[in-house]
């Protein structure tokens, strides 16, 4: 199988319950993203479905378990499993998160936040070097959604990601919903974040739904739940981003309370419209 690239078109996060619908006709969806860890079993339906989908669609492998920001060493067993998956599937893209999830060999199944310091920066770069060397390809690193900040941080997130990419040679995955969530939660303007972001390094864009809560002071606290439609201001921020970045692969993420395929396809259609507006404007 030859490696393709992700098309500058809508993709969706793949859920097994949509397998038949997708094979029956997925338009306008042109590519699919899977969570790496769900396809690390030895066989059975998950791998059979993935093989079938990979014959028809470009696949993006999105890891949620490497703990690239972890203080400890990367888990060599997990890296080996990832290398095996990337090896046989040869996907169009591999991405992971600027976050940590494993500590003292306990995997906490959440994307936990990092202080943006020089020490974190060099650790993350070392880990990305290790991943890219093991996989024999560059990866994309995704910006997190933040609920709090570290007093010790000395970097702004866009500059931090730019410097990681510069030192490691990785590309970036820009999650526009995460930008909106973090901006609301930490009190900055999302457009200024996009303006500061190295859009030329972006290989993929994510959008997804968020929930709304409140902090101790009654301020809105957005939760990156991936459990509903993309909010209108996030669609607007996608337009703002695409107008500056040019066409990119745009993924709809929907991971909890997963709806019928028709609902997801409608979200993909909205992403397709955003990309079409760009072509008309050009």
């Amino acid at each position: 199988m030859t490696r393709t690239i992700l098309p500058a078109a809508p993709g969706v996060g793949y859920k097994p319950q949509h397998f038949d619908d997708i094979l029956a006709g997925a338009a306008p969806v042109q590519w699919l993203e899977i969570h790496a860890e769900n396809y690390m079993g030895d066989g059975g339906r998950p791998l059979a479905q993935l093989r079938a989908l990979a014959e028809r669609f470009a696949i993006s492998v999105h890891g949620v378990g490497l703990s690239i920001g972890g203080e400890g060493a990367l888990d060599p067993d997990h890296l080996a499993r990832l290398k095996h998956l990337i090896g046989w599937l040869n996907p169009a893209s591999f991405s992971e998160h600027l976050a940590w999830s494993t500590h003292d060999s306990a995997f906490l199944n959440d994307l936990l936040p990092l202080p943006y310091t020089d020490a974190t920066l060099s650790r993350v770069v070392d880990h990305i070097d290790q991943v890219q060397q093991a996989l024999g390809r560059p990866m994309l690193l995704e910006n997190p959604s933040s609920y709090l900040a570290f007093a010790e941080s000395s970097w702004e997130e866009p500059a931090f990601l730019r410097e990681i990419a510069r030192r490691s040679g990785c590309g970036l995955l820009l999650d526009v919903n995460n930008v909106f969530v973090s901006a609301t939660n930490l009190g900055f303007t999302p457009q200024s974040y996009i303006d500061a972001f190295p859009l030329e390094l972006v290989g993929e864009i994510h959008v997804g739904g968020h929930d709304t809560d409140e902090d101790d002071h009654g301020a809105p606290l957005l939760i990156d739940s991936h459990g509903r439609e993309v909010a209108d201001p996030v669609w607007a921020l996608l337009d703002y981003t695409l107008a500056r970045s040019g066409p990119k692969p745009v993924l709809i993420e929907w991971d909890t309370d997963v709806p019928d395929w028709s609902v997801l396809a409608e979200e993909a259609r909205r992403a397709d419209e955003a990309l079409s507006r760009l072509r008309i404007a050009a």
Binding site: Y147, L148, F150, N185, L186, G187, D215, H217
Partner: peptide, 26 residues
Amino acid sequence: QNLTDGMGRPAGRRYAVYRNNVAVSL
């Protein structure tokens, strides 16, 4: 300690989002 809301106030229940994510997802 030393976790804030991005505007200098203590993180407070913002930290609970992570507690909740870990417990609920597992």
